[in-house]
């Protein structure tokens, strides 16, 4: 094509697109890695949760409260809830990026993030309440 000894830069984008400054925002790699890393962390956490479901199937509320008050279960439940909804937010963002175009794209993404954030927070508070309210009630009863 051209003289191979002549130094040149290969750019796949047109000069007009470069001048407009549209295109990659350089945040895609971080998003991709966050999606993968949260997925890898969810593999053992999901396995743990399946075992807990077998342990708790048909259990009564006091039994679940006793289970939820154990620090290890609280820690792993919190990790599971937070990572699940973090991974959900990352995944739904990709779907919005793919299907929602134009002016609706930003509000759709923000609305989705708001809803998923509230769901994750609701789950976190519920797990904490199960863990802390149960144990304090036990302490009052004991003391």
């Amino acid at each position: 094509m051209s003289n191979p000894n002549k130094p040149h830069v290969t750019v796949m984008r047109s000069q007009l697109s470069r001048a407009r400054g549209l295109g990659s925002g350089q945040t895609g790699v971080a998003h991709w890695w966050a999606e993968r890393a949260s997925a890898v962390a969810l593999v053992p956490l999901s396995g743990w949760f399946v075992i807990q479901v077998f342990r708790l199937a048909g259990a009564s509320q006091p039994e679940v409260a006793k289970w939820g008050a154990r620090p290890l279960n609280t820690t792993l439940m919190l990790s599971l809830v937070i990572l699940t909804f973090y991974h959900t937010q990352l995944g739904l963002q990709v779907i919005i990026d793919d299907y929602v175009h134009g002016k609706a794209h930003l509000p759709a993404g923000l609305l989705m993030k708001g809803i998923v954030f509230l769901l994750g927070l609701f789950g976190t508070v519920s797990v904490l309440k199960l863990a802390l309210a149960g144990s304090s009630r036990g302490r009052i009863a004991a003391g």
Partner: peptide, 21 residues
């Protein structure tokens, strides 16, 4: 998407356990 929707419903279970019998 379905798993996320189910997880949102699953929060009802843990919340109900936290609220009481």
């Amino acid at each position: 998407v379905a798993a996320a929707g189910g997880s949102a419903l699953g929060l009802c279970w843990i919340n109900a356990a936290a609220k009481g019998p």
